[in-house]
Design a protein around this nucleic acid. Structure first.
Lengths: 342, 342
DNA sequence: ATAATAGTGTCTATAAGACAATATGCA
DNA sequence: TGCATATTGTCTTATAGACACTATTAT
């Protein structure tokens, strides 16, 4: 019932049933922030936007973009949208195409070693955006393949590191961090399936740009194990990212939000690439195609076709745009879930 | 990225890239509360736990149980569990059987007219509990049929009321509120479907107790229109309850949490009663029965059978307990959703 | 005895998955 | 030309819903 009780003992009113006296300063102040898990696809692989911390704790580590809520002057949603705009440096036009939803709140004691902080996490789906540059505060920002993240339980940076009691960060970790994300020409253009552990080392000979985009979706057995999954996140952000990925995977099942990762017009193959990147497993091309077209309101045809066919030949794919459905009926269920999280 | 930026202008460090200076008191303090949407079934109808406000704003109105998070001394989940225990007056044994999950956070400016408050809402599913009595602070608490609530958009109490500038509450509203929820022998024992507008007037001739519980689930066309849906909630709690109901309806589809509304052992018919009460529509008895038994891990048989058959005859139903599944595969989808929220 | 009710059987419509076939267009 | 590939077709299996039927038990 919100704010009806004092923090400690307060004088009851006449019959002692209710507390009448009230003073805002009676209540324990907690800092409230928003943090955003911004997901996008780059070269067919799922990436998350991270910023480098310039101050303790976790100085030099990577963290989710976010910031304080302006108390009483903006809603949580507005705060998240504002931070997203600031951190990505995008204008309103671009942000219109970004899906933003609340993910959940995190308030464990000690999650920020300095003071009690509750963060309201948001999840964003964005089309491939111009390269991330620092926001208003000019902090370093980068798109990081989610396969490069350590997201398991208990994989946050140790409390010791958080406190900054030792050095700010061990040298090897700092080095690995910058080597891992400071470059532009990240992941190869072969598709990277998120699960399980499909992140591959990025071959240095891979140049930037590299013509043909996304599209390709040939199954690729989990070949090389890490050096993926090595990047540690500050605070409890690994947990938040993991929760965001879970949410994203679930949302693709029963909403058409996969289209939020694509441009205004897209092909069914590109759409399938979104599903494959986020679910981390290949889908049957023919069945997926028919399924998408059979779900009412998922996509609608533009008369047009893609400028060219597949990378190595084939007919030009037809172009579609997002339909008017908010929910998919019937849903596109992930394969294999019976053997799953029973 | 949590707490890395000052509230206003702060001195940059050497290269001006990052803010180094930090003082907790720089940051805007926001009160953080938890509010809980506790759902249970009483006489086959879905009820929500509400407490009466004893102080302004919204004095005399009903609100969700909740309270302040003890900054830095408990997690959000712990705060919710603590408030739930306090407000229901239940011991740990009973609370073990209660499902509690985070629902979402609400922080619109002005949602509490006194100061900025962010509330982290929780959703609880509880079996039929002993009568709600006030918690530690002895505020009045009651189980209210959800059909008696006004949950539509823009149906919160007006800002005028919130401010308490006029009287605390108009006389007629106060009267209606107490008449609606102060009694124990609420809803009739015929099932009440939540949607659409199936709340029925409670016939005064219906005595308390009334022997046979739940069970019955004959479809009942929405016969009498209101006087249901008349109860207004304080703050933005109508919105929170509506979101909680949406979440509950969705959760029944793909989790076995319907069993959290029942005792340790239950019959398939009772389980169907949960679905019907929360989804607000009758389900086909035979198909539901077969479906539940076919989903692996949903329920497991105890060898026993119920003490007696249906209220007016019929074989004794077999008893089941909750299985070990966390998710239902395949899910139990709500009927009619194609025509739904496209 | 009668009627209500728990549980099962059967049939149909829909949807998902495996696989094949066709046609298109880049190299 | 040759091969990759977008799209469609076919078949099988799984699932959901409508309906009928049997057996049991409260009144």
């Amino acid at each position: 019932m919100d704010a009806q009780r004092g923090s400690g003992t307060a004088a009851g009113d006449g019959d002692g049933e209710f507390l009448a006296a009230y003073d805002p300063r009676d209540f324990p102040a907690i800092a409230v922030t928003v943090d955003i898990v911004v997901l996008t696809l780059r070269q067919g692989a799922l990436h998350v936007l991270l910023v480098e911390r310039g101050a303790r704790p976790f100085k030099g580590a990577w963290a989710l973009p976010g910031g304080f809520v302006r108390a009483g002057r903006e809603s949580l949603d507005e705060a998240a949208a504002r931070e997203l705009a600031e951190e990505t440096g995008l204008d309103a036009t671009h942000l219109e195409r970004v899906h933003l939803e609340q993910l959940g709140s995190y308030g464990d004691p000690g999650r920020d070693p300095r003071m009690p902080v509750v963060t309201v996490a948001y999840l964003a789906f964005a089309p491939d955006l111009p390269e991330a540059r620092g926001g208003s505060d000019a902090s370093a920002a980068a798109w990081v393949p989610v396969g490069d993240l350590r997201l398991g339980a208990g994989e946050e940076l140790s409390k010791d590191l958080a406190e900054g009691l030792s050095a700010d960060l061990p040298a090897d970790l700092s080095a690995e961090l910058s080597a891992d994300v400071s470059t532009d020409f990240a992941t190869s253009d072969t598709p990277a399936f998120t699960e399980p552990d499909a992140a591959r080392p990025r071959p240095p000979e891979q140049g930037p740009g590299h013509g043909t985009n996304g599209g390709d979706s040939v199954p690729r057995p989990a070949d090389t194990q890490p050096p993926g999954r090595s990047l540690l996140l500050a605070f409890d952000h690994a947990r938040i990212v993991a929760d965001g990925l879970d949410r994203a995977r679930a949302k693709l099942e029963y909403t058409p939000l996969a289209t939020a990762f694509l441009g205004e017009e897209f092909t069914i193959v590109e759409l399938r690439g979104v599903y494959e990147a986020i679910w981390g497993s290949p889908l049957h091309a023919g069945n997926f195609h028919r399924k998408v077209l059979s779900v009412p309101g998922f996509v609608e045809s533009t008369g047009a076709t893609a400028a060219r066919g597949g990378a190595r030949g084939g007919p030009r794919a037809r172009l579609y745009r997002a339909g008017d459905a908010r929910l998919l009926h019937p849903a596109l269920l992930r394969p294999d879930r019976e053997a799953g999280v029973r």
